[in-house]
């Protein structure tokens, strides 16, 4: 079978395109002959990186390893794999992580609200109430209880809220206690801020204006699907 694997040179580098309609066995065979031919042809042995495109076929890790074994040697390397499809499982997981969970409710003492991925809470977290999300937490309302973002250890998660009340914020393993000792100035402190973990792994409160600079990736997925 000819034509199941083609080599293409682009500005970004070399691409190995494996036809998704061909059987993988044929593709392996052709990859072998193609690479051995290239090894013979290339005289100045310098490192060449290949980007493997598999079209409408998602390769398993095992299949990827076979291809890596065929192609790679001291000079030929595979930089990445790319396909036009993703598995359903991955898609559902991505969908959960990428679309914020919307909760409109009061979180009372002893209650716990949890979400996969990001959470947007509209309401009040009372003292003793807990909101937990594996991603970031955004609160429109009042936070008087505990907000725990990045519960699975995602330290890039942030908590955006109005921190004018006593509260506790956790990101991953980091804990920050917000104490407003003087309740009188609370009225003036009516600004939304965010809490994040800085490069020194220290939890910090910062002005909302800095959010875009510190976490530019946050709005990447707002609206619409991108291939993850």
């Amino acid at each position: 079978m000819k034509g199941t694997v083609s080599l293409k040179g682009t500005q970004e580098g070399y691409q190995l395109i494996i036809q998704s309609s061909a059987s993988l066995e044929d593709a392996y065979e052709e990859l072998k002959s193609l690479t051995s031919q290239m090894r013979k042809d290339s005289h100045n042995r310098r490192e060449i990186k290949f980007h493997v495109k598999t079209g409408l076929r998602e390769l398993t890790d095992k299949e990827k390893n076979i291809i890596i074994e065929i192609v790679e040697d001291d000079y030929f390397k595979i930089s990445s794999f790319e396909s036009d499809v993703i598995t359903r499982e991955k898609c559902v997981r991505w969908q959960k992580e990428a679309s914020p969970t919307l909760e409109v409710r009061t979180v009372r003492s002893g209650q716990m609200v949890e979400a996969e991925g990001d959470m947007l809470l509209i309401g009040v977290v009372h003292p003793g109430g807990i909101v937990r999300a594996s991603g970031s937490i955004y609160i429109i309302g009042e936070l008087k209880g505990t907000a725990h973002a990045g519960v699975n250890g995602k330290e890039s998660a942030v908590v955006v809220a109005n921190f004018r009340y006593n509260a506790q914020v956790r990101i991953g393993d980091n804990v920050h206690v917000i104490e407003k000792k003087d309740r009188q100035i609370d009225e003036e402190a009516d600004t939304t801020e965010f809490v994040y973990v800085n490069d020194l792994h220290i939890i910090e409160v910062s002005k909302l204006e800095e959010l875009k600079a510190l976490r530019p990736e946050l709005d990447n997925y707002a609206g619409g699907i991108y291939n993850g």
């Binding site: 009372r108 003492s109 002893g110 209650q111 009372h126 003292p127 003793g128 109430g129």
Partner: peptide, 12 residues
């Protein structure tokens, strides 16, 4: 008041 809040949550 704190306990009352907890109770409301349970009754909900």
């Amino acid at each position: 008041i704190r306990d009352a809040d907890r109770i409301i949550g349970l009754i909900e």
